[in-house]
Design a protein around this nucleic acid. Structure first.
Lengths: 203, 203
DNA sequence: TATTTTTGATTGACTGATCAATCAATAAAA
DNA sequence: TTTTATTGATTGATCAGTCAATCAAAAATA
């Protein structure tokens, strides 16, 4: 069997298998055996390439983030106006791939794991920052930096919240409704906050 | 030692210990021994009273929800106008008790567990419905039922999202900022959506 | 009141199952 | 022959759940 150069192939297969297994089970409490079986190899091989379960998990999150970033970059590139940039970021967050129940369940599991693993937490903070920054790139030209910051925080939280709700699979939450909700939020804020005197919050 | 009537005392102590342990560890992967030790009894006793770990978890969530409902009811009672009702609901969601890092971490763990346990999922759906309904009681008199529905969905998701963000402990997210964000969202929506023709969403 | 019986409270010790991680062995390129 | 890929078998640790035994209050009885 040993064709050479299997390493990258196996790594990829294992990461994808991990994502599928975690997603379908909605938990990081999946065994290396399950993941390995899903990838069509033995558990020992998974250990051989990743050293530990934790490392495989980290690699899985990294892959998810890389995917997300790639999508965001290409979407932003297609946007002409600042307002369009905002809409792009919103839409990407709810792209079919990322919003699939499996993936959402996996995200939830990762957030939970972040409570225990500093490394996982760091990765999720990175994601949060990037989302924020992507939103800001469109919002700042439309209102003050301060206003933009405020709106971006709200929009980011709203997006995360819609993910959580989706994880409960309580029927009524399509992709379109989600996008509309965030869009309405941004529009509403841009509206009322532009027509008034731009006052900061009194924190 | 056997004073009679220990059962309710032990149950309460164990549930509180479970919440503390889960919260501080940020995961449901806590052992019965840890919980029992925290409550000052043996693991066997925890099993004696709750039958299984799962049952203890369920009881813990129930307690949390009961607390939340009590807070909401008393806050709503103090509100005079519809708009005040909305503010009450928002403020209760971010009350110091519920928004403490430990409790937030516990919530996150429960959401994750909901992926596996139908019973847990059911409880969380109940919570979501109640939040929604509480918001609606204030919003409906202020705009149409359809508009209110839309805004309530957004506000509820926003609240959940702010919880998640808080779980990452990424510094910048005080109670006041959170309240302000949701208040601004509601105000903004009430504003822009009232001045336009009240169009339903096309879901 | 004194003694016995019953019952709730409580635990240490044990069991069976699960799992991450290791390792020695095998097979096939190079 | 050296290196890479791969696995079955094994180990060591961890845990949920069980059980038989103990202890002391309370209730019943003498």
């Amino acid at each position: 069997m040993p064709k050479l150069g299997m390493e990258p192939v196996r790594r990829k297969a294992l990461v994808e298998a991990a994502l599928r297994t975690i997603g379908s089970q909605g938990s990081l409490d999946v065994t290396m055996s399950e993941i390995a079986r899903e990838a069509g190899v033995s558990a020992a091989l998974a250990h051989h390439y990743f050293g530990s379960k934790q490392q495989l998990l980290i690699a899985t999150i990294r892959t998810l983030l890389r995917q997300l970033r790639a999508d965001a970059v290409s979407a932003l590139a297609r946007a002409a106006t600042p307002r369009e940039r905002v809409s792009s970021v919103i839409r990407v967050s709810f792209d079919a791939d990322q919003f699939a129940p499996d993936v959402v369940a996996a995200w939830l599991a990762f957030y939970s794991e972040a409570q225990r693993s500093e490394e996982v937490r760091h990765l999720l903070v990175l994601y949060a920052r990037r989302l924020q920054s992507n939103l800001l790139s469109g919002l700042t030209p439309l209102c003050g930096r301060a206003e933009a910051q405020h709106i971006a925080e709200g929009a980011a939280a709203l997006i995360d919240g819609l993910y959580i709700r989706r994880s409960l699979r309580t029927a009524t939450l399509s992709i379109d409704t989600s996008v509309t909700l965030v869009e309405d939020y941004v529009s509403g804020q841009l509206n009322t906050r532009n027509t008034r005197s731009p006052s900061g919050d009194r924190t």
